[in-house]
Design a protein around this nucleic acid. Structure first.
Lengths: 339, 339
DNA sequence: ATGAAAGCGCTAACAC
DNA sequence: GTGTTAGCGCTTTCAT
């Protein structure tokens, strides 16, 4: 198996057709399950396929016909996050079920990375692409327009999408949590987030949160957005930072649950009682919260539904079926015992 | 943007060549950075590319030449796991840096799913594939042989690989942890794992663990492999199960860290002191452990290195460079405060 | 350094 | 229900 340069004399449609005693076209029709062949022909072709071990060449098919491409490009912020992993998983399963293949990419919140990825991916003439995040470079928008290719933007809801948007209403999530925390008595609140590169993505929640605080008598005492990947550890030391900065905090809103859990443990290590001394809220409804002694107050979000809906909308658009342009994926504030 | 059926009059190489006043062949040489053109020609072609907004058609390129395919198929057990996400992330970054694109798939531990995926993927004539897990159907092996395509098997080390194997030595991980737990006084030990579908993958660690226990005076009191996705919650109720079955346990080895953390919280909820009443060990070196009040005893594994090594080995093989067949990715037992 | 001709394997369009 | 012809946009090979 070490000779990767072995000449690949692949079996072609022509050979299948010959063995079956039909023309290439007829064999092609059978394999594509198009109409226009008899049962007998069908069986003969399939037998030939079997016998020769024929592997169709989609490269040739997609090349010969614009509509034969079943490649879908999907670019997420990162692959290491459980949230995006779940979305991607759901997208891939749905696409695969519908007969499409997923080419991935991750942009790490850098729009130029997305641009570079898209440039390469478009050269494969994909049937459609799924992007995430709100920020795209002008070149990206231009390429998408030029190619006239179906696009679904996911994660952040975009009310004036390039083509289709399927996302969470992050602003509302933050707003709702802001109101809730104030209603539970929080007045001096901090926000703790983390972003590896370009700012923006998680911040929509913060905007909504801020607005709710201001409107309902709360107060943002401080905020800390670490230059880091969101996660347990970032939450832990982000909490240390805000607490050392402001000793009078009575609540912290985190960019996501894992950070909140990190914060929870920091508080615990300092002998702070949650929620008596300080309230803690997260976002995402991540699994870790299910085993904590105290149920985490968070916003549960439907990542699987988001992915499935996005993939289905894309394929519907590709197939020319009617699709809604803007679809809100469900989120729900789940009161726990930490606020 | 709603008209996805708009005719795509893509710019072709021929148009670029014409505008540049050269032949298609010369333009092709310039774009592929092959040799055989003057600086002047180069500049003219590039200007034409710019002016026309030319997007090369890799479908045509790969179709016209076997060696132009830069598609790599990567199939992992699931996309929702942080571990596999990390491996995939690392693979994708490495491949992308080397000029290749990643088509993904997940098999959910069902060999037939992998087979279905591979069948589809091979029709795209990928330059190589990366598979994970030990179990492949005979058809998979046959297809791989017929296509004479470079293959890297990851995650589990395979000492007689199809082509190349880059993996962790799970047996040794389990063995080492078994010895360690016994050396720390554990005698009545349980194993708690979880597998969604076909058994096997996580079990190699268990095998090594068992062997070490038996050899060093420990004893496997019970074991529970849940039909579930490994995670915090599975660890939580798996622990409940083994503890209710055997009240005399003095240690539990978990399939991975998240399960161990779930177990930790279960013990805590029952007033059991760790490690005084019971020891707990995991596998993976996952991030959550970094914020726990007690550092989790675990095996830290280099998922990023695994992915990078696997991707690099695959590309080296594709390019006909010398590659090692069997590569062990590093793992290291990290003593914490839970054993 | 550059070009001309052939062909990769399939599908669309049209004939029969 | 089936076959024929043309052509997708590149790269290969061979000339010059």
């Amino acid at each position: 198996m070490s000779d990767s340069k072995k000449k690949k004399d692949n079996v072609t449609l022509a050979q299948v057709a010959e063995l079956a005693g039909v023309s290439k076209m007829t064999a092609s029709r059978v394999l594509r399950k198009a109409s226009g062949f008899s049962q007998n022909t069908h069986d003969r072709v399939m037998r030939a396929v079997e016998e020769l071990g024929y592997v169709p060449n989609r490269l040739a098919a997609a090349f010969g016909s614009d509509k034969a491409s079943t490649l879908i490009g999907v670019c997420v912020p990162r692959l290491t996050s459980g949230m995006f992993g779940s979305v991607l998983d759901s997208i891939d399963h749905t696409l695969s079920r519908l007969g499409y293949q997923t080419i991935i990419g991750s942009h790490e919140q850098v729009p130029e990375t997305e641009e570079a990825w898209l440039t390469t991916i478009l050269s494969w003439r994909p049937a459609g692409v799924i992007l995430s995040g709100r920020t795209h470079t002008p070149t990206v928008l231009e390429m998408l327009r030029d190619q006239a290719i179906p696009v679904v933007e996911i994660w952040n809801l975009n009310t004036s999408p390039i083509d289709i948007s399927v996302g969470f209403n992050h602003f509302d999530c933050g707003h709702e949590m802001g109101r809730y925390m104030v209603s539970r008595g929080c007045r001096n609140v901090a926000f703790v987030g983390a972003e590896a590169n370009t700012p923006g993505m998680g911040m929509v929640r913060f905007d909504g949160f801020m607005e709710a605080l201001e409107a309902s008598g709360g107060h943002l005492a401080t905020r800390e957005v670490l230059i880091d990947r969101p996660g347990f550890y970032a939450g832990y030391y982000g909490t240390e930072t805000v607490l050392s900065r402001r000793g009078d905090l009575d609540g912290i809103y985190y960019q996501e649950d894992n950070m909140a859990v990190g914060g929870l443990f920091y508080c615990q290590s300092k002998g702070l009682s949650v929620p008596d001394d300080i309230s803690i809220a997260g976002w995402g409804g991540m699994e870790v919260a299910s085993v904590l002694p105290k149920r985490l107050t968070t916003t549960s979000v439907a990542t699987q539904a988001l992915g499935k809906t996005a993939a289905e909308a894309l394929i519907a658009r590709i197939r020319g079926e009617p699709v809604q342009d803007v679809i809100v994926a469900p989120t729900r504030l789940v009161p726990g015992s930490t606020v």
